[in-house]
Design a protein around this nucleic acid. Sequence first.
DNA 1: ATGGATGTATGATCTCGGTCATATGGCTAT
DNA 2: ATAGCCATATGACCGAGATCATACATCCAT
Lengths: 197, 197
Amino acid sequence: MNHLSFGELFEEARTGGKSLAQGEFLFQKGAASTHLYTVLEGCVRMVRFTSTGDPIIMHTARSGDGLAEASLFFDTYHCDAEAVLPSTVACYDKKRIVAIIGASPQKSLACIAFFSRQVRSLRALLEVRSIRSARDRVLHYLMLQAAPENMTVRISGSIKDMAHDLAMAHETLYRILANLEKEGKISRDIGIIKIHH
Amino acid sequence: MNHLSFGELFEEARTGGKSLAQGEFLFQKGAASTHLYTVLEGCVRMVRFTSTGDPIIMHTARSGDGLAEASLFFDTYHCDAEAVLPSTVACYDKKRIVAIIGASPQKSLACIAFFSRQVRSLRALLEVRSIRSARDRVLHYLMLQAAPENMTVRISGSIKDMAHDLAMAHETLYRILANLEKEGKISRDIGIIKIHH
DNA sequence: ATGGATGTATGATCTCGGTCATATGGCTAT
DNA sequence: ATAGCCATATGACCGAGATCATACATCCAT
């Protein structure tokens, strides 16, 4: 089972990169969608605005995440992509991607595998979020993220990001982690959490 | 833009159907995944159990919905599929599906489109769930689901299912809907919610 | 070095929403 | 027709967790 990212898969379709200042838009709703992107650095989020002007955040992409993969099959973008931090993205030409898929059954299978892995992990995240108790949610999340051998979780990003993943206030997460450590259920180091079953 | 279901896409890979009594399992976690399914009739849900034995409902599939599409590239199923009602499902042979994808770039593109749509809707659900306030969560959910022309949401399934999607107690959702209606922000009919902005 | 921004951390307070209880209407099976 | 089940609906209560406030450390840019 190969675990290629979108970028690795379609390296040949890459047409360069782009730097975005904080607050800059990568693209906006309605623009012709000619490229797909992956975030190399920083943080870009997809936003749609309701008729009342309220923003709806559809997705927040961090380093390694794809952007607008779904617009491969649409002529225009249907959200805005805004850099929340200074960011860099890699650009991939849609036409070339389609050509690659048409020419290589292997690549197209790998691409489908890529998406279905993503579906799995998104469902897993949804599963975590359907747990009511914040404490249980944290425990379940840690279990999911932990490498099975050593029951160790490497935290990518900040605890605040993790709190967002877990759909809870970051203060709550700090408290819960502190409690779990006090109880001896976990131990912590910078960027690492170890679970003691 | 075609919105083929998995079933329509891979009709040739179909190997028949299966009837399930209420409570019967279509497959269970860990079993070799040889087939994918779509629900023809009834209702099948995907469940995982936590270490404490609590069930977590990952997904509820009704007529027309696919089941376990994401396990196309995994050797075993990752959760249990249980019929909540007497149900019938169509079965599709994984090997044949892979063969079809290899042989037809068109089908493989359609398949990729299918998965990327799914990724997008899962992401949308995740973002909805990251909204703290239950009331705002409901509003955003309705906005996302609403057809842009007429701002009308067709409810598939029950309000309880919707409450599960929204990760809140169904009582809370009943109350919030009643309030929104009282305030004139929405109006309701059986199976339909209309948003007045 | 200094000020600003951000992440980490913890205490105090208060409210939102989860839980429990109860009621009613619709549907199915006997 | 009757009993049982489920979705819908609403009231009452209370506790988990959101919010607000404060403090300290780190990292940048000036």
